[in-house]
Amino acid sequence: MQIFVKTLTGKTITLEVEPSDTIENVKAKIQDKEGIPPDQQRLIFAGKQLEDGRTLSDYNIQKESTSHLVLR
């Protein structure tokens, strides 16, 4: 499924993911596309910070959901 990640600069990154993917996996995909190390990434969805060990389905992130990327 596709999800979108919006950066603070207003850029939207499109990612191909599975509901069973962990947040860690998603951060690795963002690193592949954008070159941002996962330890600098914070992903926010529905006002919550997403934890590495959880999956997209844990957070009820469905296709075409948009989460926000904040850099630390």
Rank of each mutant, 00 (worst) to 15 (best):
L56F: 03
I30Y: 02
R54T: 06
I44E: 13
N60G: 15
A46T: 05
Q2K: 13
E16H: 11
T22S: 08
P19M: 09
G53R: 09
S57L: 12
L15N: 00
T66D: 09
L43P: 01
I61V: 07
K33C: 07
D32E: 14
S57T: 08
G47L: 03
K48W: 07
Q31Y: 15
T22F: 07
Q2W: 12
P37N: 07
I44V: 10
L8G: 11
T7H: 05
D52W: 03
I30R: 00
E64N: 14
K11A: 08
N25Y: 11
Q31W: 15
R42H: 12
R54W: 10
K27D: 00
Q2I: 15
I13C: 02
E51G: 03
L56R: 00
L69S: 02
I44T: 11
I36G: 02
T55F: 06
Q41V: 09
D21T: 10
L50Y: 01
K33Q: 12
K6Y: 10
Q40R: 11
L71A: 06
I44W: 15
L15P: 00
G10Q: 04
I23M: 03
E34Q: 07
K11S: 08
L50P: 01
L15Q: 00
T22V: 04
F45A: 04
F45M: 06
T66Y: 09
H68A: 08
R54Q: 08
E64F: 14
L56M: 04
E34H: 07
E34F: 09
Q62G: 15
K33P: 02
D52T: 05
S65M: 10
T22N: 04
L56V: 07
E18P: 03
I61F: 07
L69Q: 02
F4S: 07
S65E: 08
D58Y: 15
G10S: 03
H68F: 15
L56I: 09
E34K: 04
R72E: 15
N60H: 10
L56T: 01
I23D: 00
Q49P: 11
E24L: 14
F4R: 08
L15W: 01
V5A: 02
R72P: 09
L8D: 12
L69N: 02
E24I: 10
N60K: 09
L50T: 03
V70P: 02
T66P: 08
R72L: 15
G35L: 04
N60M: 06
Q2E: 09
K6C: 10
E34G: 04
K63Q: 13
F4D: 05
P38H: 10
K6F: 09
Y59Q: 03
I13Y: 05
R42T: 15
V26K: 00
S20Q: 10
K6I: 14
I44G: 03
Q31D: 05
N25T: 14
L8C: 15
D58K: 02
D58I: 03
T22Y: 07
L71Y: 07
Q49L: 14
Y59N: 02
E51T: 06
I13H: 03
S20H: 12
I3S: 01
T7P: 03
S57A: 13
I23Q: 01
R72G: 12
T14A: 09
Q49D: 14
T7L: 15
L69M: 07
F4H: 10
F45G: 02
N25E: 12
I36Y: 13
D39Q: 11
G35A: 05
V5T: 01
P19W: 08
P19H: 06
G35P: 02
R72C: 15
T14R: 10
D39G: 10
N25V: 14
D52M: 05
T55V: 06
T55G: 02
E51L: 09
A28M: 14
S57F: 09
T9L: 10
D21R: 01
Y59P: 01
F4V: 10
K6E: 09
D32K: 13
T9M: 10
P38D: 04
L56W: 03
S20W: 13
N60C: 07
I61N: 02
S20K: 08
I30N: 00
L71G: 05
E18A: 12
N60S: 08
L43D: 00
I23T: 04
A28Y: 12
G35V: 02
E51Q: 10
E16Y: 12
A46C: 10
T7G: 05
P38N: 06
N60W: 04
Q62Y: 12
E51A: 07
K11W: 08
Q41G: 03
V70F: 14
S20E: 10
Q41A: 05
Q2F: 13
G53L: 07
I36M: 05
L43T: 00
P19E: 08
I30M: 03
A46N: 15
D58H: 10
L43F: 03
I30Q: 00
Q2D: 05
N25K: 14
D58F: 14
Q40E: 12
G47I: 02
K48S: 08
I36D: 02
I36N: 02
T7S: 06
L8M: 13
A28H: 13
L8E: 15
D32L: 14
Q62D: 14
T9G: 12
K11F: 08
D32Y: 11
N25S: 15
G47W: 04
K33M: 11
E24R: 14
I44S: 12
Y59D: 01
E18K: 14
Q49G: 05
Q40T: 08
K29H: 04
G53Q: 11
N60P: 03
D52N: 10
Q31V: 04
L71E: 06
A28N: 12
L15T: 00
T14L: 10
K11L: 09
T55M: 09
K48V: 15
F45R: 03
R72M: 15
Q31T: 08
K6W: 10
L50I: 04
V5F: 06
T7A: 05
A46E: 15
E16Q: 12
A28W: 11
L15V: 07
D21C: 06
I23V: 10
G10W: 04
D58Q: 07
E51I: 07
S20I: 06
E24F: 14
T9K: 11
Q31R: 12
D52V: 05
P37S: 09
Q62E: 11
V17L: 05
V26H: 00
K48E: 13
I3N: 00
T66F: 10
L71F: 06
G10L: 04
